[in-house]
Every structure is written in C-alpha cells, then in structure tokens.
Amino acid sequence: MSIQHEGLAKEFEWVTRPGEQKHIGESIEKTDLLMQEMAYNLIVGANTEVDRLTKEALDKDYSANKILDDGLLNGMAIVGVKFRDNVIFVPEVLVAARAMKAGMAHLEPILSASGVEPIGTVIMGTVKGDLHDIGKNLCIMMLRGAGFVVHDLGVDTAPDEFADAVEEHEAQLVGMSALLTTTMPNMGRVISYFEDVGLRDEVRMMVGGAPVTQEFADEMGADGYGENAVECVDKAKELLVLLKELKA
C-alpha cells in the first residue's frame, strides 16, 4: 500500500531521514484516503477543511483514536520534520497547530464522555498596548499539546478581559505575555486588577516574554515565570498542583 493522497505523498517527500521515512511512512500507509486528506490539510494549515473532515470522519463512525492518530498526528509529524529542516517557519507551524485545534475541538466531547478530562484551563493573552503574539501562540500550542484547555484572548488584552474570561471559563491559570519594556508593567496592572475584583486567590498567574525576567515577575507579584514555551508548560503544571493543594 502506498500513500494514495497526491498532496500528502508530495509532502512526505520532505521526510528524508530513513528512520523517519519508515516510522511516519508506515503510519500513513496503513490509513485510508480520508485520513490522508486530513493529514494533508493539517500540514497546509487548512483549518476549515480539517474541521469539515473531522466531522465527516465522526459521522462515518471513525473512532476518536483513529482520527487523532491517523489524521491529525500523522500530519503534525510531517510539520515537525519540515520545521526542523527549515522548509517551513514559525507562522506555518502555528497555522498547522490551529488546524490541529479545529480537529481536536470535535474530539473533546468524546474524550470528556470517556472520562478523559483536561488537566486544567488557562486564559492566555498579550497585555494591553502590545501586539506581539508569537511567543504566546507557541505557549498555547504547547499547553494544548500537554492536555490543557486554553482560551486565547489574543493581543492588546485589557485587565477586565482577563478577569471576565477567568470567570466565564472557570480557569485556574492566567498566562500573560509582553514583548515591549513599555507594556511589561501592564502585567502588574492585570495582577492588581485581579486583587481589586477579588479574583487573585482563585487563580495562579504566569508571565513571559522576551524582556521579562524572574526578578521582574517576582516584583510584580506573578506566581510563575517561564523563559520559553516548554518552561511555560512545566510552570503551568506546577502551579496547578499548588493551587489544588491550597484549595483542598
């Protein structure tokens, strides 16, 4: 059996390391055309197509496991290879991650019904006055990959928007990002706002961004600081445990 989907077969040509060719190739070759089409659309970041194909697969009684493994993960494995080999860059990775989310959104109710709950809920946003979002978006991708539900408030986010989202989604964690030294103090203003409206003890607040340091995070009263997306996930897990212990 070979890769039936023409576009996916072409994308697979980027996979050149023998071990990966075998591992990813075998994983794709055992899938049918619908799953291959899903993998292809994830790679090219066509989130509406991934959304539609996931719905179609569920209507045809494909299991959530099959959709995740054969469609979404096979696509993301090729995205990872293309990024590592400098064929694509961060923006393309992020649109693929958005397509992954579009597919996962249909699987979440099934997971929940099967007793698989998210490990926590996080509100993420770039603070008021700041329009930089790459670091935040990488953190969101990683948090979702780690099993968190993440609500992205985007850029230029006011303190009340963070607070409203926490209440609406009953989030345990807030993640704030800033890239500019001029907007960095607005993270502290969000924390103050949470104190003013009586929400500060309900959540744990994380900060990050190029100019942010542990010292600055401590100074403004944040609970956690992550230097990169991997640290962001570690910190989120750590803070969630502490919050649960505190509330127990």
């Binding site: 993960l73 990872g80 990024f83 992954m100 990683m142 990959g145 780690a146």
Partner: peptide, 13 residues
C-alpha cells in the same frame, strides 16, 4: 507523541 513533536518544535523555534 503530540507533546513530543511540539516540544521539538518549540526548542527549534
């Protein structure tokens, strides 16, 4: 597996 792929992407980023 997904987290592993994302971690490698993040480090490369």
């Amino acid at each position: 597996r997904l987290f592993e792929i994302y971690s490698e992407i993040s480090q490369k980023a």
